[in-house]
Computed example of a mutant assay.
Amino acid sequence: MSKFDYSSIDGHSLQTFIAVLEEGAVTKAAGRIGVSQSAVSHTLDKLRTIFDDPLFIRDGRGITPSARALALREPIEDILNRLHTLSHNGDFDPMRDTLEFTIATNDFPLGLIFPRLRRDLDADGIDARLNFIPAGIPSANLTRTSNCQMLITPAPPNKPDIRHLKLIESKMVCFFDPEVRKAPKTLKEYIACRYVDVRFSATESSQQVLPTSLTSKLSEPAVAVPNFNAVTPFIKGTDLITTQLSVMEHGSLKDLTWAPLPVRTQSRPLFLLWHERYEEDPGHQWMRQRIKETVKSITGT
């Protein structure tokens, strides 16, 4: 049994442990928390001594957590949450207090919401530093670590420690260049269209929110791009279409025209997610409200 002094465990070491556990690789964990790979390895060696366990075992090119590491996750996250609570200050003033947030999002919400928010904050004389993590379809796991305070995603949260706020509800529609073509009016016409898809990875696509009964009938996209900002340049001046949320008329696809799809589809929400550790944080509460107000001012809903 290790006789190491447990009081020497610090919050940074615990944050490093969670990062390694979630990333499954020392290099990725180091990049996520902004330290060197050797610093992460040194911290893991320290924790292995404290817990008298290897914690992570090499497995091919990655690492696999031990049973002890998996069991430690929940209590360590609880400790980090309590440490964060200690920093709460009821006397919050956005004009005085330091505000810094890291937000995981893809380029659509990033371009839609935050340039307007940044301008409004500047006009109010508020110094808030906003950092963004690029993500396709962000995972709620990102909000469980301290390096990401919020994320915006179409995926509804399904974890008890994740809180959420619905920012937008919008339907999938057909965007096109009206100077070149008209919108497809029938399902047959729609299926025959050449289209642009947004593919975040080999398995993640913006088409995932459409019903399988529809996507199974579509051919491969004529063009697949890695983000929403790249869609319009490929559609302008061509007969290509794209199927995206109608709210994008306020942002990434504002230079195109849209029409309803020739099939019935459900509205799709866009959520703001955060970990419960930030639920009562006055600065976090304030920023969530500003984001909500910004979305309302842009969309009118």
Rank of each mutant, 00 (worst) to 15 (best):
M287F: 05
P262Y: 07
N131G: 06
S36C: 05
S146H: 14
A29C: 07
G31M: 08
H84F: 14
K166I: 05
I126R: 02
K236V: 01
A222Y: 13
L270E: 03
R73Q: 12
S252N: 10
T85G: 05
D10M: 09
M150A: 08
L99Q: 09
R144N: 00
G31D: 06
L44N: 01
M248V: 03
W258Q: 03
P282C: 09
T143F: 07
A192S: 15
E169P: 04
T64N: 00
A123M: 08
V35D: 14
D120P: 00
R288V: 03
S170H: 12
D177F: 02
S252K: 13
F228Q: 12
T49Y: 11
P221R: 15
E100T: 14
V196C: 04
K296I: 12
A224K: 05
I137D: 02
G111Q: 07
E77Y: 01
I241N: 07
A104C: 13
W286S: 03
I298P: 01
P109F: 01
M150S: 06
N89M: 13
D127I: 11
G283V: 11
N131H: 12
I103G: 00
H84C: 02
N147D: 14
I168G: 00
I298Y: 04
L99I: 02
L86T: 10
K3F: 12
T301C: 09
V231I: 14
T153Y: 08
P157R: 10
L121H: 00
V231N: 11
I191G: 07
T43E: 03
I126G: 04
D91W: 08
Q285E: 08
K166L: 02
S216T: 09
C148F: 15
V180F: 13
A155T: 04
S2Y: 07
P134K: 15
V263H: 14
K28D: 08
C193G: 09
R264N: 08
L245P: 02
D127K: 02
L130I: 04
E279N: 11
H42F: 13
K159A: 09
L112N: 01
K28A: 11
D255N: 13
E179I: 00
I137S: 00
P260E: 11
T242W: 10
A230H: 12
I50G: 00
D107K: 05
F132W: 00
T301V: 06
P211V: 10
G34H: 12
R264F: 07
T232Q: 15
R264Y: 10
P221H: 15
E279W: 14
A183S: 14
Y195D: 03
T49G: 13
R199H: 13
S36V: 02
L273M: 12
Q207E: 06
I162A: 05
K188A: 09
E276K: 13
L272V: 02
